[in-house]
Design a protein around this nucleic acid. Structure first.
Lengths: 205, 205, 205, 205
DNA sequence: GATGAATGAGTCTTCATTCAT
DNA sequence: AATGAATGAAGACTCATTCAT
């Protein structure tokens, strides 16, 4: 068997798959999982109904693949922004800023992820949890712990606080108008968080 | 000439309706609107398939009635707790405490309301917004404004801050384990919020 | 048992029944049998659902009663008009005129009867046939036979010709605009029929 | 890349569609639109329930397609028979003969069309009117007008007379026994019409 | 006689999924 | 690998009918 042909085939398959995933993202983001229509997904991607099932065994598997891909990308996006900063305060700001910019620049992914986060079926939420786990760790290890060590933050329970910060981010970022503009600004939210975490007068050494 | 007394009939209708609403709440909370099954709702309430349609013209109308009833009750629950306190700090705590207790004592309603808040269909979200509007006003008028007047809070934009507080509450309250215990405590969340809103050293007169 | 009370009851029952029949007529005329709604019928009559079933064992029985009553009245109406004339030509005109005036003055009954005449279920058509039988006989006995005897009509097969005349009447009378005005006039139709039946030159003695 | 050749697929679709239309015709003819059962239609055609909906978006759309197809065929059938004759009298006979033969040879279509013509829903009747329009024009242009020009017919109002003739045809042709034999003959009806339209002694020049 | 809450059989319609080619 | 015709389970909704009071 010729090597090139194999490569070509592989490449075509990857492109078809990527095309389907993109199309599914738009569909799931707009309609939610239950109301999403597999036929529309394949059509929007330029393929026939059956083609979806050559790549994903079921609608649910397609959904899980999407959670994996979008969630991972989201986590990478935010993680990179955090790591790019050295200063603790800037890192916290970067967390919110990158999150808000993700919502504005990847509105489909954002809407999809947020809707999934609160969907009734527990399976999807479990998958979300698995994907986002690293981000919780990152917040604790790269923001909260060094922040406490530096005396910028008061003593905090890292997992709980990471959870609070994620909650704050997800809740505020999800409030977008019809043009995907967030109602609150990243800075206002970061300021709110910063004040909540900051060492207070009484707690200062 | 009717054989049943008017009030007898009225009572029967009210009971049947209440029974259906209760059953629908459980169904919607567990499965979400799309996956909820109207037949199951009737049967769980102890009636035949069609009975739901003697009380609600459609599945959607049933959903909207439920949003109205649960949402109003939720708002009343939290509002009452806030108004019961005089001290601003206690009011903020009462806001979170009552919210968390609602989640633990009315887990079905809470899950239903939260799932609806993030559901893809915009109609239900609009209805939610209408129902929760008064609570935003209450937070601004009974907590934030007097808090700023008393010098307990730093200068704040009331609507934006009310939105942040609701976000914080909804986000944290929605994180429950399988026994409907919240992962974060009301006090920890209230403390987080209090610190974020508190007048800081530099802002103090 | 008091006599008056019995009479009173009987009278009330007759009135209730008449009220239901009137209401059913409107419903069946507008929607046809299948789409007619028993609940609407009772409401329009000012009674509760169940009352219909105190008077008629089923929707179908109600329909059959209606066919009987309306059909009989229609036949009586046309028969009286025919019998009121002595002259054969006038009798034929009276047949069409009375038929057309029935359509215009009793539009509900007319629409109901015509729709039933062509409805798919054979049972109703059979009932129609039974009700209209006397009219066929009347046309033959009071118009066609004396007309042939007087030499006004050419030799005709009475049953077949009666059928043709009924067909002509029903077909033309059923073509009404939205104000229940017939498109063709009774006179034009009568003239058409008269010419068709008239003894021709060659057939004259 | 499709594995079926385009024309193969097209052929399969045409056959399936034709099969469904045939089956639907039988169903609608027997039961009427309201009582017709879409599942039965699919199954009678040898397909599963849902297949109808791969070809027609709704029961109503299927009905309209059927009106279009059967009506057009009926009009074509009668039109061809009329145009095949030169003599005016023969043309009028051909009109009735072809109409009656249609009823006997295409009993399903005939019953379907006649039932639809008198159905209560106005939408179907409107569609019928549109389909049959050309036939009215044909009767006027190819029978009545030349007939008057040749002095065979007395002066007539063409639209009104065309309407009368259609009425006569539809009314008589619809009277069939259980073996789809018409009760009246085409010739008797044609003779009746001919005499009605013929120039009379007094009107002759 | 009258009521109307309750029933549940029946139907259209949707759409994820299969599979022959 | 791709296609798309066919499938059939599932579910919202209607409404004639019953019956306790």
């Amino acid at each position: 068997m010729p090597r090139y042909a194999q490569d070509q085939l592989e490449k075509i398959k990857q492109e078809t798959r990527a095309s389907l995933v993109r199309s599914a993202l738009a569909e799931f983001a707009q309609y939610g999982f239950e109301q999403a229509n597999v036929n529309r997904i394949s059509e929007k991607a330029g393929f026939a109904k059956g083609t979806v099932y050559n790549y994903f065994p079921s609608k649910q598997a397609l959904m899980l693949a999407l959670i994996e891909e979008c969630g991972t990308e989201h986590v990478a996006w935010v993680s990179a922004a955090i790591r790019a900063e050295q200063d603790i305060t800037r890192r916290l700001e970067a967390f919110f800023e990158s999150g808000f910019s993700f919502v504005e620049q990847q509105p489909l992914q954002a809407r999809f992820l947020l809707a999934t986060l609160y969907s009734p079926g527990s399976e999807f939420r479990t998958a979300m949890g698995r994907v986002y786990m690293p981000l919780f760790g990152l917040i604790a290890a790269e923001i909260l712990l060094p922040g406490m060590a530096e005396g910028v933050f008061r003593p905090l329970d890292p997992p709980q606080t990471a959870s609070l910060l994620m909650t704050l981010y997800l809740g505020t970022a999800s409030q977008v108008d019809e043009h995907n503009k967030t109602r609150l600004t990243a800075l206002a939210t970061a300021d709110f968080a910063m004040r909540a975490l900051h060492v207070s007068d009484g707690e200062r050494r």
